[in-house]
Design a protein around this nucleic acid. Structure first.
Length: 294
DNA sequence: CGCTTTTGACCGGCGC
DNA sequence: GCGCCGGTCAAAAGCG
């Protein structure tokens, strides 16, 4: 492990994050003040917008959606919860069970590329395998439909989107990125495969070293508009709910302190509000909860 | 034509 | 050792 970060950096982020999220049992998605055009748009591609409401798909959230169909606003996610029965973590894999009316909700805003599909024993539904299209990113996910509950998609995330995470350590070059957490023999996979030299336009590649340091972390919340499309916001949240000690642990590491951005979201507020697209989702973590917040 | 998806083959781990 | 199974690879097909 690189000396500039704790050897267990992933575990720290990972476990504290989960703990924090679980402590804040429920996140209400308040579909406030949505305009009609927006609602229409949502109707057309509700899932696409729900994507934006995905609070932090890397750590896994159970998302329970209700959709009445008539009114687009009713189609908004009415509740985003982290429930013990819906979130499982094992060996850095996060399993989500998502009540869904279709496959669309398996989309989470990242750009995934399907690389395989297998039929599952004793299940009429196949399992699909996806990996992040960013050639530097080893994040993967599996999507399958519960045989017992066809309305439920089971999504297993494996690995963080380190092309984003690396942004927090942006003084590092790509070559010195924190190695992707080893998951079996998967990650840290050779990123020099044939498509490495061809990052695609819409893939989540905010840390492309060829790009200037993104300004996404300016304190201007408005700058988050559209940021989710780059796969940023989902991962901002986790770091914002980390205990300060955790952040300090990391930031005390050489090379880190100068690059870790101040919170773009909650620096002056006691109540973290995350809202990549406030029209569709909000993410509130208030200090009344037991842990995680300063 | 380039990118994505499909799908059967292949490989490694694991249990018997 | 063998078979099963999950995960990955890669060629072919599909699509815009």
């Amino acid at each position: 492990m690189e000396e500039w970060m704790p050897a267990n950096w992933f575990d720290i982020l990972d476990e504290e994050l989960i703990k924090g999220l679980l402590d804040n049992e429920t996140f209400l998605s308040e579909s406030t003040s949505i305009s009609e055009p927006e609602a229409d748009q949502l109707t057309d591609s509700a899932s696409k917008h729900l994507v934006d409401s995905n609070v932090c798909n890397d750590v896994g959230l159970l998302k329970t959606f209700k959709k009445d169909g008539a009114n687009a606003r009713d189609a908004l996610p009415t509740r985003i919860s982290i429930l013990e029965k819906g979130l499982n973590k094992m060996d850095h894999k996060y399993t989500l069970k998502i009540k869904s009316l279709g496959n669309a909700l398996s989309d989470d805003g990242y750009k995934w590329r399907k690389y395989g599909q297998k039929s599952i024993k004793h299940s009429p539904y196949p399992r699909s395998y996806f990996r992040c299209t960013n050639p530097r990113c080893a994040a993967k996910k599996q999507v399958e439909r519960s045989s017992s509950e066809p309305d439920t998609l089971i999504i297993t995330y494996e690995g963080l989107h380190l092309h984003y995470t690396s942004h927090f350590f942006s003084t590092q070059t790509d070559d010195s990125l924190p190695p992707t957490k080893k998951l079996k023999n998967t990650t840290a996979e050779p990123q020099n495969t044939s498509n490495e030299s061809k990052p695609r336009a819409h893939e989540c590649s905010p840390t492309d070293p060829t790009q200037p340091n993104p300004t996404t972390f300016s304190s201007d919340l408005n700058s988050f508009e559209g940021a989710s499309a780059r796969g940023l916001l989902e991962d901002v949240v986790p770091l914002n709910i980390l205990k300060p000690s955790i952040v300090n642990t990391i930031s005390n590491s050489p090379s880190f302190s100068s690059s870790y951005p101040s919170s773009p979201i909650s620096s002056s507020s006691s109540c973290l509000t995350w809202s990549p697209n406030p029209k569709f989702c909000s993410f509130d973590v208030c200090p009344t909860s037991t842990t995680t917040m300063m």
